[in-house]
Every structure is written in C-alpha cells, then in structure tokens.
C-alpha cells in the first residue's frame, strides 16, 4: 500500500500515478483479490513509467493508444475534486459500515435459507453502496461550487459529468471487494446499481434553477428506492445498468443548463459588499 501511495505522488506521467492511485484502496482492502489487483496495477504503472533516467526527464514512449487513453482520463478534475472533499473522504465508507454491521448481525442471529441470506446480503450491500455514494455526492456538491469559467474551455459537459462519475466509482471501489463473496447475480446487480448511481448523481448535483450544486432530498429518496428495487428484484439492476448511457446523457444536459454564472454573481456581490 505504501508503494502504491508513493507512486501516486511521484513525478511521473499522469497515467502512472492514476494506476498507483487505484492500487491504494485495493491494497488497503487486505484481501487476496484486492492485493493481486493492486500488484497488477503497480506492475502496469512500472511498465508505463519505463526506465528511470537521471540525464533526461523525457517520458519513455508508450503506445499511442495508451497515450490517447491517458489524455482522456480526467485526472486533473479528479484531483481537484478529491481536494475539495478533503479529509472528509476518510469517512466516505462509514455509511456502508453502518449497513454492513446490521446485515452481518441479521445473518448471524437468524437461520435463513440460502435464498433469504442472499436477499439480506444483497439488501445490505445495495443500501451500503447507495449510502456511501450519496454521502460523497452530497459532500462534493456542498464543498465544490460551480466553476463557471471552466465551461468556456474545450471540454464537453458529458466529460465533466463523467469525471464526477469516475470519482464516485473510484471512492466506492473498495466496497466492490466484498461483492466478490456474494453470488454472481447479486454481485452484478449491486455493481449495476453503483454504475447507475455514479452517472445519475452528478446530474442531480447540478441544480439548474438555483445555479448551485446541491443534492435535494428527492435524490436520496430516488436512490434508496433504486437500492430497494435492486435488492428485491435483481433484474431491475440490469435495466438500470443498460440505461446508464442514457442517464449519463441526461446528467450532461443538466450540466449544460446549469446557470453557473448566477452562483458566481452572488458570490462576488457578497464579496464586494464585504469589502465596502
């Protein structure tokens, strides 16, 4: 884990640091699959970094496909968003733990059939994942205001929303490790739910009417309903997963219609009043 963390801050190209950054939570999971994935990612990072040279700071050449993939990665936006979350990110998985404990107790203290155990596990995992993603999205929308000027830069609304979705997925990724121990259908349904929420919440964060980023109470209700539906009927998750591209486009539409300047005007008006 220390090696992966060090790799995140090394003065290497962004894609090397991205691999190391993903390896950190996987290594921290202390599970065999997580450690194996972390080792694989660090090996990939080493391969991408190439040989260290004191004489030249030139980055070793990588295949053009990898290079263009690296350029598309929203690493800058991810780092800015992580900084906006600050130390609160250490508490990101607490909501999941709050659901994991009662789930474990329910299974331990009752004699469930296999199907019932599966249902309880699915319910606990769905609610835990949903609560975590909702908590992170709420924090992010409160702590990271709209950045109006950046909308004039050559990137699409879809890309900005997708970067938020990637951030939510990354933060929730350690929660996927316990899913490996669930039956395949349950694990996949929770994964599909997570993907759906990751693309849905960035759109819900953007309140076009008020020019703010804020999650409303209706979003919480909607997300928890999706979690309940997924738990009771895993096929619902299939529908949610398949709808994710459309949901991402809907989120991008909300990003485009955000009145970002409204927030800015209010903020600078307040600053001017304070100065006077």
């Amino acid at each position: 884990m220390a090696l992966a963390a060090a790799g995140t801050w090394t003065p290497a190209p962004g894609r090397v640091r991205a691999c190391a950054a993903v390896a950190v939570p996987l290594a921290a999971s202390a599970s065999l699959p997580g450690l194996a994935a972390a080792v694989a990612l660090l090996s990939l990072a080493c391969f991408q970094a190439g040989r260290w040279s004191h004489r030249s700071a030139r980055v070793p050449s990588v295949p053009s496909s990898l290079r263009s993939f690296g350029r598309r990665l929203p690493t800058g936006q991810l780092v800015f968003s992580l900084r906006a979350l600050g130390l609160w990110i250490t508490l990101a998985h607490l909501p999941a733990a709050l659901f994991a404990a009662p789930t474990g107790l329910a299974i331990h203290n009752n004699e469930f059939t296999a199907d019932q155990t599966d249902l309880v596990l699915r319910l606990g995992a769905s609610l835990g994942v949903t609560a975590t993603v909702l908590a992170v999205a709420t924090l992010l929308s409160a702590r990271r205001p709209p950045w109006a000027w950046s909308r004039s830069l050559p990137w699409s609304a879809r890309r900005r929303v997708a970067a938020d979705a990637v951030l939510l997925l990354l933060i929730a990724s350690p929660l996927l490790i316990p899913l490996l121990y669930l039956p395949a259908s349950s694990g996949l349904s929770v994964l599909a739910l997570l993907v759906f929420l990751a693309v849905r919440l960035p759109g819900r964060m953007r309140n076009s009417l008020r020019g703010l980023t804020r999650l409303g109470s209706w979003t919480w209700i909607e997300a928890l309903l999706a979690a309940l539906l997924t738990s009771l009927q895993p096929l619902t998750a299939l529908v949610l997963g398949l709808a994710s591209p459309l949901v991402l486009e809907a989120s991008a539409r909300r990003e485009r219609s955000l009145k970002a300047g409204l927030y800015l005007e209010r903020r600078f008006d307040a600053a001017r009043e304070a100065e006077s």
């Binding site: 780092v79 968003s81 950045w147 000027w149 990137w155 609304a157 800015l264 600078f268």
Partner: peptide
C-alpha cells in the same frame, strides 16, 4: 459541438473565477 467550438475560444471573465482546489500551474 462543445469541444470544436471552444477549442479556438478564450474567455477572460470580469471576476477571476478559478477553482481554489488547484495551484496556478495545475
């Protein structure tokens, strides 16, 4: 055509609006 239209466009707003979560270099 969000990217194509903005690729040759620069905007300097009245109020300096830059995210506080990044350095100038970033």
């Amino acid at each position: 055509r969000e990217v194509a239209a903005r690729s040759d466009l620069a905007f300097v707003p009245q109020e300096p609006d830059v995210t506080p979560f990044a350095t100038i270099r970033e």
